[in-house]
Simulated scan of single mutants.
Amino acid sequence: MALTPDDVVTKQFQHVRFKEGFDPDEVDDFLDEIVVEWRKTIAENEELKAKLAAYESGSAPEEAAEEASVPAEEEKPAPAVEAAPAPEATSSTAPSAASAGIIELAQRLHDEHVAEGRAQRDQLIADAQAQAASIISEAETRGREEVARLDRERATLENRISELRQFERDYRSQLRSYIEGKLRDLETTATTSGAQPVSAIGL
């Protein structure tokens, strides 16, 4: 199939699981296609250049005249064919140029993959740092809220303890006053009736 620059630009590689990047086999196959098409293009370009040079030098019109005057010699190679080795002579540079292009493309793909990997690494680090900061902030907020809640509960309990202590003191005081009042009433009753006072019997 004919490969165009648009094919190179729009080529989509399939992502693989459990590792970053594209499928190496798929990338290698696509690069092999590029090599084949580029070599064809370079050979055709060199051949066209050779034919153009032969035409500009005037050898092409002479070939046409010879073919018109000698029809029986159509099967013989025309002199222009002798100029065909020009592409062969220049085609020695084609592999090196194609290799350089392939190396440049491979280097560019490598750089893109490395840059993508670094970007993903930086993004993961940034996300992890943001998540850690969020967790720490949330934990600190919860800690402050819990401390404040415990402080409120402690203050409530302390107030309740103070109230209970005050109630105990008041109750003891009232109970003592009540008992003392009853004892006085008993003493008064005993005195008026002629009985022995309660205080005299050691109560």
Score class of each variant (00 low, 15 high):
residue 117 G to V: 13
residue 90 T to S: 10
residue 77 P to I: 02
residue 120 Q to H: 09
residue 143 G to A: 12
residue 127 D to V: 13
residue 91 S to K: 08
residue 141 T to I: 06
residue 67 E to R: 06
residue 77 P to M: 07
residue 190 A to D: 10
residue 160 R to A: 14
residue 96 S to L: 15
residue 194 G to C: 02
residue 169 R to L: 12
residue 90 T to A: 14
residue 85 P to L: 10
residue 17 R to H: 05
residue 121 R to N: 06
residue 181 G to H: 14
residue 138 E to G: 10
residue 178 Y to M: 14
residue 134 S to N: 11
residue 54 A to P: 00
residue 155 A to L: 05
residue 186 L to Q: 13
residue 156 T to L: 08
residue 80 A to F: 05
residue 11 K to G: 00
residue 48 L to H: 03
residue 20 E to N: 07
residue 138 E to M: 05
residue 48 L to T: 07
residue 81 V to D: 13
residue 115 A to Q: 08
residue 173 S to Y: 08
residue 90 T to P: 02
residue 94 A to L: 12
residue 134 S to I: 01
residue 3 L to S: 10
residue 37 E to M: 05
residue 182 K to D: 13
residue 95 P to F: 06
residue 7 D to C: 08
residue 20 E to S: 12
residue 183 L to F: 15
residue 166 Q to S: 13
residue 114 V to Q: 12
residue 139 A to N: 07
residue 34 I to H: 09
residue 74 E to R: 09
residue 81 V to L: 03
residue 28 D to W: 05
residue 28 D to P: 01
residue 111 D to G: 06
residue 164 L to E: 07
residue 23 D to L: 03
residue 150 L to E: 05
residue 156 T to D: 10
residue 183 L to R: 15
residue 1 M to D: 07
residue 191 T to V: 08
residue 60 A to F: 00
residue 22 F to R: 06
residue 71 P to M: 01
residue 190 A to F: 15
residue 113 H to F: 05
residue 141 T to Q: 11
residue 122 D to N: 06
residue 153 E to C: 01
residue 110 H to W: 10
residue 188 T to R: 15
residue 2 A to Y: 11
residue 38 W to F: 13
residue 192 T to M: 15
residue 45 N to S: 11
residue 145 E to A: 11
residue 28 D to H: 06
residue 194 G to K: 06
residue 154 R to N: 08
residue 116 E to W: 07
residue 179 I to L: 15
residue 119 A to E: 08
residue 50 A to K: 00
residue 176 R to C: 08
residue 19 K to F: 04
residue 46 E to L: 15
residue 73 E to G: 11
residue 74 E to P: 00
residue 189 T to W: 12
residue 162 S to C: 00
residue 72 A to Y: 03
residue 163 E to Q: 14
residue 131 Q to W: 09
residue 91 S to I: 02
residue 27 V to A: 04
residue 62 E to N: 00
residue 76 K to H: 09
residue 128 A to M: 09
residue 194 G to V: 01
residue 111 D to A: 14
residue 21 G to C: 04
residue 53 A to Y: 04
residue 99 S to V: 11
residue 113 H to E: 14
residue 146 E to F: 04
residue 127 D to W: 04
residue 109 L to K: 07
residue 199 S to L: 08
residue 121 R to H: 08
residue 32 D to T: 12
residue 79 P to T: 02
residue 35 V to D: 12
residue 38 W to M: 14
residue 1 M to W: 04
residue 67 E to L: 02
residue 144 R to S: 08
residue 23 D to M: 03
residue 131 Q to C: 04
residue 63 E to P: 00
residue 58 G to E: 01
residue 132 A to Q: 12
residue 172 R to C: 06
residue 181 G to E: 14
